[in-house]
Amino acid sequence: MTTHADRAARLLRWYPRAWRARYGEEFAELLAADLADRPRSARRTADVAASGLRARLADAGLSAHPLDHLTAARAGLATAARCGAAFLLAGLAMWSQVAIGMQWARPRHQGVTWALDLMSVALLGLALIALPAIAGLAKAAIDAIRRGRGRELRGPAAVVLAGAAVLFFGARHFQNGWPGTGGHLLLAQAHIPAWLTAFCWAATMWMTSYLAHPAALAAFPPGQLAWMACSAIASFALAGGAGQFLRRLDQPPAGLRYAIWLGRAASACMALFITGAARWLISPDGGVMPAFHVGSIDLAAMALLVTSLMLSGRALRGTTRARLALARTGAR
């Protein structure tokens, strides 16, 4: 028979770990007493669920009411990084598809070329921003190790490195495993190296419309299917590990300010990429060649791009708010 304590413990799972660590015991006591008063109450369940989800948003740096400002600043950066990773995945899948298509067929509409140019410039901007971002994180991590706080960074760092290694070597192996990649027939479109588009295509191969057609997907070679599964896991590990690393990394106020500035620059590049992607999606001949026509997967990718940009912007605003609050209280 389920006791009130068991039911209270189940309801408590709506809340994030940090919240449970602070309020869990006393809240479970209140829930158990409330359950004794009113054994059945849909309103109570809905209230706990809604409140728990709001606490999870705050825990991810997406709400103005965090448990504490330092945690909120780190959580906001972590969420922005995860959103950036999701954006890159969807963006690279879309960009490599259009770029490979244009290596095989000249678009009938100038708009598609502009779209690809905009997307390419935006991705180049993101790559340039990634360099100082990685350098800043490496410096903060080295400082943390010197202070004897490197132990808690080991796990997420290992996950990030493993995910990156799997993606890099796997994509290198599979990048020319499909007849469409590995060459550029039209010299006019050769401003993007073919190996780069093939690499990005292979790294994001699992983001495919074939997922909606299991019978066709089953006809893929087993090696490619295994790679699709591996690369999906590696991508999630990379994004999740990077987020966890940022949550645990103790950054000084100047480091936070620097990260926020880079995040805003990245947001501008993301907005530019979305402009290019939208231009491609609405082009009358968006389908550069039959195999690359605009489909539901591209609309879904566009939705993911926009959502990632909005959430990362919200997370960065949360980080800024937390940084200002930390500066006001003089705390670190």
């Binding site: 602070r22 209140l30 409330d34 209230d47 706990v48 728990g52 009411h65 448990l67």
Partner: peptide, 15 residues
């Protein structure tokens, strides 16, 4: 006041 609402308010007031 439902439990979730009560503790949400308590945590904000405490913060």
């Amino acid at each position: 006041i439902a439990p979730g609402t009560l503790y949400e308010a308590l945590s904000r007031l405490e913060a």
